[in-house]
Design a protein around this nucleic acid. Sequence first.
DNA 1: TTTTTATTTTGACACTGTCAAGATTAAACG
DNA 2: CGTTTAATCTTGACAGTGTCAAAATAAAAA
Lengths: 203, 203
Amino acid sequence: MTNQKKNYHHGDLISSLIKAASDILQEEGVEGLSMRKLADKVGVSRTAPYHHFKDKNALLCAIAEAGFKAQEARLASLLSSHEEAEQRFRLYVHQYIEFADTQREVYDLMYGRLIWKTGTPTNSLKAASKQTFKRWLDWVEQLQADNVLPNNNSALRVGQASWASLHGLSRLLIDGIYLDRNDIQAMIEQMIQTLIKAQPASS
Amino acid sequence: MTNQKKNYHHGDLISSLIKAASDILQEEGVEGLSMRKLADKVGVSRTAPYHHFKDKNALLCAIAEAGFKAQEARLASLLSSHEEAEQRFRLYVHQYIEFADTQREVYDLMYGRLIWKTGTPTNSLKAASKQTFKRWLDWVEQLQADNVLPNNNSALRVGQASWASLHGLSRLLIDGIYLDRNDIQAMIEQMIQTLIKAQPASS
DNA sequence: TTTTTATTTTGACACTGTCAAGATTAAACG
DNA sequence: CGTTTAATCTTGACAGTGTCAAAATAAAAA
């Protein structure tokens, strides 16, 4: 019950809810995001949100979906830059981890257990995630052609495996297992080395 | 309130709790594990467990700790086998994913947000995880010497990055993002290819 | 102006973690 | 053996959660 006009009809609750939820998410994490607290913050009664979102799961799915859109947009923006192929990939890796790091709670929703296992991903969310992944695969194909990523397997497999690696690093960050900033940067570099095809000469 | 003798003193609640909790965990996931349900299952009142575990977090930490011990034992067992270095590493990767897959809920506790970020890892848990990681690093050093893992960086960096990759794959499995069994096996193979130093000839 | 529809609210229920105070039993001591 | 002490367990209570059903309110359509 903050500073909201007290019209019985709120206007556009639906987007106000997503915005407020995103705020709480960033500040307190999913644990701090309850439907009641959210409703209160928007200045509406406990159950009002349920007329716009089937349940909490649906709300979270909507936020996650927006995350996929954002991630995809970031990739598109990078792909339209005039960088060399390998350099572009390096930038992407850093960008991916940075996204996961700064938007940790959103990232957690996007790829986390809460929605995908405990909850039920919306059809709309599934579609968004699928598309984002497809965009990634398309690029992987290019990267293979440009000899940046290995050709020893299909774009699908290479894309899956390398994405899994990025995901693993992201999770360590998000879940608070690795907190040392310097370590993370160095880990990213090492991972890039492993992922790209041309390894520097050794022994 | 199942089939338990109704002694006022339970005998060894502490281990009964861990066992029962592990069972619930495997069958219903963390979401299905409540302190009250647990107490009921063991045949004891709601708050009895609180005299043996400070809170739910402490209970979960104990389970996670046992998981690290198990994981470490598995590694030790593998290291005492008479396999060639590279083959041993391949086996380990498969074993790692299999562990995560069959003990998903325990794995999730071991490396998941619930304890490490939302909750507070016990000192004892921190020690166990640290030791398990150290054992891994020691082996990585060997693997580098045996030319299985790359020498382009310290054992710590190589160990961190490759472990992060395994972790990423595990999470995709656990969180239910990738459900296709066949894909997973192929992804593992691809990841191994990427991780080990000697890549098969290509192009 | 009346009817229909879209929104929002209040009440209620079952469930959660956990604290404080009391009850019960086993172990230690004389 | 009896009594004190310590360990263990229970009941009561509180604040918080997601969400359903029914009633209230306001806007849009007729």
